[in-house]
């Protein structure tokens, strides 16, 4: 009987195999979720290398603690939780870094990887760059949990319930985080609205 290709196996089955020591099963989980994990980490860190390190760190923690996954939530919710905590820890460490380093990192690391259909005029490109830096700075001023709730809702499209489960908090708390984050961003970025 031919082996079922891993691509056709569900996450829960892959996790069960990984819990029994099947490395390839966990590597398949990484392949399935790496882009999503990277995007969340990038939204948080706004630096390509940091985002790669953060998402890989989250995968490593998931691998090390895979035996603790009990299946009560989906694998990705459980993994999201690990990723969120890794990003929040990063934020606590990065708080000590001066703001100038952050802006410089964003400017040098965020490069468009595709050529747009209608090339942007140089002045508009400069404005877009300025906006990107301004957005980055505005997001950076948000407290870590507000920022995370905002990223998970605004950028990743998770529901309030899913965010509450991921951040291990009440739905009401998530709504408050979201409201405060949006209010703060609107004040910071009002000139670009």
């Amino acid at each position: 009987m031919a082996a079922i290709p891993t691509a056709q196996i569900g996450d829960e089955e892959l996790v069960a195999s990984a819990q029994k020591g099947d490395r390839r099963a966990f590597e398949e989980l990484v392949e399935r979720h790496k882009q999503k994990a990277y995007r969340i980490a990038f939204d948080f860190a706004r630096d390509r290398e940091e985002a790669k390190d953060l998402s890989q760190e989250a995968f490593l923690k998931a691998f090390t603690h895979i035996s603790r996954f009990d299946g009560r939530s989906g694998f990705y919710t459980w993994f999201y939780r690990i990723l969120v905590n890794v990003c929040l820890d990063y934020r606590r460490r990065a708080k000590r870094a001066p703001a100038e380093e952050y802006n410089e990192t964003v400017e040098h690391q965020v490069e468009p990887s595709h050529v747009p259909a209608n090339p942007v005029a140089p002045d508009q490109h400069a404005i877009a760059g300025q906006l990107s830096r301004k957005i980055g700075a505005a997001l950076d001023t948000l407290p870590a949990k507000q920022r995370m709730a905002f990223i998970l809702k605004n950028h990743q499209g998770l529901s309030i319930r899913e965010i509450a489960e991921t951040m291990e908090t009440a739905e009401g708390t998530v709504k408050v985080h979201l409201h405060r984050a949006v209010t703060a961003l609107r004040q910071s970025l009002a000139e670009f609205a």
Partner: peptide, 27 residues
Amino acid sequence: LLPMTAAHDEPPPTFWNDYSREMRQKL
């Protein structure tokens, strides 16, 4: 305003190949 805040980073395929290779080494 809010849609603009999403950072659109699309790394090239080589980035993802490196990502997978590094991940295997770390595992």
